[in-house]
Each structure stands twice: as structure tokens, then as C-alpha cells.
């Protein structure tokens, strides 16, 4: 069994726009499902608008306040206009990661093109924001403070490379975590099938071991799903702060 098979894109129905194949696939289905889930959580939970919240409303409020605090603490007060974007980003990644924990569901965050597209959007947006806000002063961003001028020819390229590597590290981190976790789960599940497939009593007994490991792994993977959504979001906040304050 190919543990990488779960990452394959399978078209559900064909859509072609402008000569490009943009078929609705299992990946697209997951994305739409996430949109529906997040929107339902945030609206159904707040339906009653009660002062003393119920369970769903509490969850919605906790998520809201969690991200609001994150943006405020890490990106600064001026970053309030970016709160809806950061919130959307967090919820989209978080639910994308968690949805992948359901067996058989597709994890779109395990695709580098998806995570890179998000990271690149953040990167470009943040760079544009910095240039719009600070103009040519943005160039000083690449010259470290308190460093002798003769070192600039070495340090400035390094800083530029460091800056340009942001979207790569941001997207690779999320993609690699999600892919590694899901591959591992699948590999262990494959072991179980292999052992039980042997048909012997020993095979059945030994086949339980990967199930135990997988059960523990699933808890671990849920943690990874949360952590990686958090990391992606908080780094976005830090980038926004850099763009706004330009140290």
C-alpha cells in the first residue's frame, strides 16, 4: 500500500476556466467543507448572542479572543485592520489540519502548493504593506542597526536572503508537518493490515501494536495540527509587525 496515495488529487467534476483545468477535486471539497464548518461555527455559535454563552458560543468567542490577543500582542495595536485576515487564515489552516484527521478526508495543508500560496500571499502582502507605509525607507530594513558600513556588502545580501526565505520556511514547515504525520499514520496502518493479512494468530496479536501506536499518534497529530496553525498565524503576525514598525 502506498502511504503517499492519500495525498493524490482526485477530480470530482471537471471545471475548465480560460483553458485551464481547475476541476473540483477532493482537495477543493475539503476547502469548501472547511469554509462551511468555520462559518457555521462562527454564526451558529453566535446565533443566540447571549451574554452568558453556551458551549458553541464559548468556542467561537474563545477562538475570536485568542486570535485578537495574538494579533494585538505580536503585531501591535496598528494591526487591528488585519485581524479578520489573520483570523480567517488561522481558522482555514486549523480546520484544514483537523479535517485531515478524519480518516479518508483529504488534508489540503499537506500540499506544498497550497501552503506556499498562502505563505507567498502573506509575504507579498506584508512586503507591499511595508513599502506603502515606509516607501524607500523600507530598504533600510536590510541593513542591520549598529553594524559598520563596510560589512554591508556581505550583510545586506544575507538579510535579503533571510527575508526571502520567510515564505519558504513558513510553507515548508506546515506542509512537512502535515505530510509527515499523515504518512506515518498510514504506514502504521499498513503494518496492521500486513500483519493481520498473514492470517496467523501471531499476526493478529502483533497487528494490534501499530493500532496502539496510531492511537497515540492521532492525539499527537491533533496537537501538531493545532500547533502548526498557531505557528503559521503567529509568524504572520510578526511579519505584519515588522512591516508596520520597520525596525
Amino acid at each position: 500500500m502506498d502511504p503517499l496515495h492519500q495525498f493524490a488529487i482526485k477530480p470530482i467534476f471537471t471545471v475548465i476556466i480560460g483553458g485551464t483545468d481547475v476541476s473540483f477535486s477532493n482537495s477543493s471539497l475539503s476547502m469548501i467543507a472547511v469554509v462551511v464548518m468555520v462559518f457555521s461555527l462562527m454564526t451558529l455559535g453566535m446565533r443566540s448572542r447571549s451574554l452568558v454563552p453556551g458551549r458553541l458560543q464559548s468556542l467561537a468567542e474563545v477562538l475570536y479572543e485568542f486570535i485578537a490577543k495574538m494579533v494585538r500582542d505580536n503585531a501591535g495595536h496598528d494591526a487591528k485592520p488585519f485581524f479578520p485576515f489573520v483570523f480567517t487564515l488561522f481558522m482555514f489552516i486549523l480546520f484544514g489540519n483537523l479535517l485531515g484527521m478524519i480518516p479518508g478526508a483529504f488534508t489540503f495543508t499537506s500540499h506544498i502548493v497550497v501552503t506556499f500560496a498562502m505563505a507567498a500571499f502573506v509575504f507579498l502582502g506584508v512586503t507591499l504593506l511595508a513599502i506603502l507605509k515606509h516607501g524607500i525607507k523600507f530598504a533600510t530594513f536590510f541593513m542591520p542597526h549598529g553594524v559598520p558600513l563596510w560589512m554591508a556588502p556581505i550583510l545586506v545580501p544575507i538579510e535579503i536572503v533571510s527575508y526571502l526565505s520567510r515564505p519558504i520556511s513558513l510553507s515548508v514547515r506546515l506542509f512537512a508537518n502535515m505530510m509527515a504525520g499523515h504518512t506515518m499514520l498510514k504506514v502504521f496502518a499498513g503494518f496492521t493490515i500486513l500483519m493481520m493479512g498473514s492470517g496467523t494468530a501471531l499476526g493478529y496479536v502483533a497487528g494490534v501494536v501499530p493500532v496502539v501506536i496510531n492511537t497515540a499518534l492521532i492525539g499527537f497529530e491533533i496537537g501538531v495540527a493545532l500547533l502548526q496553525a498557531y505557528v503559521f498565524t503567529i509568524l504572520t503576525c510578526l511579519y505584519i509587525k515588522d512591516a508596520l514598525e520597520l525596525h
Binding site: P144, H145, G146, V147, S162, L235, D242, H247
Partner: peptide, 10 residues
């Protein structure tokens, strides 16, 4: 974070 610069200067 990721901004250029070093701790002493910031």
C-alpha cells in the same frame, strides 16, 4: 522574530 537587526540594537 525575523526583522533585520541584532538584540543589542533592538
Amino acid at each position: 522574530g525575523y526583522a533585520a537587526g541584532y538584540p543589542g540594537a533592538r
